[in-house]
């Protein structure tokens, strides 16, 4: 299986005035195509920083990041925007759906930035919503959907561009147990259909849903779960 994600010796240092903080201290990680991997770690461990770098929302201070064979560690914001649009599907803890738009329009958003024509966009968005079981909710606004439904709409939005990886950041953090179950089952199904999934969580049992677990602590990555 070819590698989708290749992080090697990634450092991330934040400077706030005279204080320097090293959030990542040489992280290397390889993720294969169609792998389902969970990254765990307590807050302040560098988990969010790692997720930002994996999601091309930020670039490393040192080290390289190859995403689908392409070096994204030195790209400009403009180039990163294109990479995010094409290669990454985000699933957020807070869902981040735009309240003024219907589920359909929310799912269409990344396609709009990709320059897909309106007609094709409608079809693709509808298919994605049907895929996550929201075929009958396409014209509802986020306020009219339950938490679980909102998270499924968010997953539909992540799917719709057919990205290299789905990056789910605490996707069940705001959900009740029933909805958590639904979302985890959906991620499983997507994995079974050949998608690569990176799940970031601090919950043990959620992490155990994946094939492989890595943990981050004090800016360093180790295989397995914390004991």
């Amino acid at each position: 299986m070819p590698m989708i994600v290749e992080l090697s010796g990634v450092h991330k240092t934040y400077k706030t005035g005279s204080i320097t903080f090293e959030a990542l201290r040489g992280v290397s990680l390889e993720v294969q195509e169609n792998e389902y991997i969970a990254i765990t770690g307590p807050s302040g461990s560098g988990k969010s920083t790692l997720m930002n770098i994996l999601g091309c929302l930020d670039i490393p201070t040192a080290g390289t990041y190859l995403l689908g064979g392409e070096d994204v560690s030195t790209m400009s914001e403009k180039e990163l925007a294109v990479v995010r649009n094409k290669r990454i599907g985000f699933v957020f803890q807070q869902f981040n759906l735009l309240r003024s738009m219907t589920a359909q329009r929310n799912v269409e958003l990344p396609l709009m930035y990709a320059g897909v024509h309106a007609k094709e966009r409608h079809t693709l968005a509808r298919e994605a919503l049907e895929r996550v079981g929201l075929g009958d909710r396409t014209h509802h606004r986020p306020g009219e959907l339950s938490g679980g439904q909102q998270q499924r709409a968010c997953i539909a939005r992540a799917l719709v561009t057919n990205p290299d990886i789905i990056l789910a950041d605490e996707p069940t953090g705001n959900l009740d147990s029933v909805s958590t179950h639904e979302v985890l089952r959906l991620l499983h199904e997507l994995h079974d259909q050949g998608r690569t999934i990176i799940l970031i969580t601090h919950e043990h049992d959620v992490a155990l849903e994946s094939q492989r677990q890595v943990q981050i602590y004090d800016g360093l990555l180790t295989e397995g779960l914390p004991v």
């Binding site: 999601g55 929302l57 914001e77 403009k78 925007a81 294109v82 995010r84 649009n85 094409k86 985000f90 981040n96 735009l98 958003l109 990344p110 930035y113 990709a114 939005r157 561009t161």
Partner: peptide
Amino acid sequence: IREIGLRKALGARPSI
């Protein structure tokens, strides 16, 4: 700010 961040995460270039 959140909306702008989301749009950027979904691939909106700064010019857009």
